[in-house]
Design a protein around this nucleic acid. Sequence first.
DNA 1: CGCCCTGTTGACAAAGGTCAACTAGCGTGG
DNA 2: CCACGCTAGTTGACCTTTGTCAACAGGGCG
Lengths: 216, 216
Amino acid sequence: MLRQPRGCADCPVGRASSVGHGGACPFIDRQRRAGHLLYLEGDDADGAWFIKRGTVALYRSRCGDTEPTVRAVRFAGAFIGLESLVRATYADTARAVAEVTVCGISREGLDHWIGPPWSPARTALEVTLRDEHVDRLSHTTGHGSAISRVAEWLAREGPRGVALELPRQIVADLLGMRPETLSRAIAALRDRGAITADRTQITIVDSDLLLGPPNA
Amino acid sequence: MLRQPRGCADCPVGRASSVGHGGACPFIDRQRRAGHLLYLEGDDADGAWFIKRGTVALYRSRCGDTEPTVRAVRFAGAFIGLESLVRATYADTARAVAEVTVCGISREGLDHWIGPPWSPARTALEVTLRDEHVDRLSHTTGHGSAISRVAEWLAREGPRGVALELPRQIVADLLGMRPETLSRAIAALRDRGAITADRTQITIVDSDLLLGPPNA
DNA sequence: CGCCCTGTTGACAAAGGTCAACTAGCGTGG
DNA sequence: CCACGCTAGTTGACCTTTGTCAACAGGGCG
């Protein structure tokens, strides 16, 4: 049996690993200083962390253009990097806000720890992680003009046909704007030649023009 | 063995329930018409659904004041109401956007299906659901003035001491505003007498004044 | 002790919210 | 089957809010 750091029997991860009842926790704890970069958005998602002490900020950049903004903060008791289970790359950049203690595990270790594929809990976890991820994409937090948010959303959801089915009121809510503003943004993209749109459907004509010129 | 609807062997939930290998899926499928209310924010969270066909919109109201807005949309293959595992009440109102087929399960059934407490996958799922929920609270999507968003955030996070530890830049990102705007909002709340604040810490003086008069 | 970084304050501009009028499409009922 | 009315969406005008740019101040760390 591995020597476990003190307190692991009280830690949710330790408990789930039967620490104190003959089990060994596969997570390895480390100290990181304030500002330490845990992982970078877009890097290979090769592991996850459990935060034992301290605070971690999750940054995400919008479409690669501007500098990333904080999309969430994680405190002691949270996991970060769990997208390793369902994605090839990290969805965020994780940085320690203050000094932290994090317990890390490799992707393989995580895969093994979580248990067999198609167990109910793992299935629910994976579906939740995937949904959470696409939510975040829509939810480009206010930053960016209404037109660019609509354009990014269309570029992402258009191919899946979603734009055709959802009422404008719901789309406006998702993008954090008023129906009137959405209508104007759609009109602007139509004038730009990127889409054709009437009040019942939207078709992407030119993907380059969609995201291309915010300055036109 | 229960009779399973066709296609359950291909459904993630069915697979996780070993349908086709002697298992029975505890979820029961139902048809619901467009606009059907599946559950209401604040109601007892007494079960979850898996969306087999169609689209469901999740609405959430801000602090009870205005009418709810759509915070997310769930498509076929998603779960809704999984917060039954970690919360006493539903966090959102779920409404069918178009005609849907949803497979429902009671809270007890879900608890049993997900497997024993303190299994690794269930632990990770529960932590993820809880974090997702608090994220959503911060993430009051743009709607509402800067001052009211800051006030709600302070009212929620202040007691936990979070406001004291996070740098303003991060708080501003979380609330979807610029640091300058955050600073002005804090100054306005200080002038209102709701808080005392200098550049290193914030103390709530009068909770009523915080959320109370948006018209003052 | 001084520099740098974070936060604050001010003035201005622009983006988006609000209110109102109008139109198209759809469902309902005669 | 057609007409009516309702709801969702569009467009216009105006105004508030917030973002932007710039200068400044306080605190912490070297």
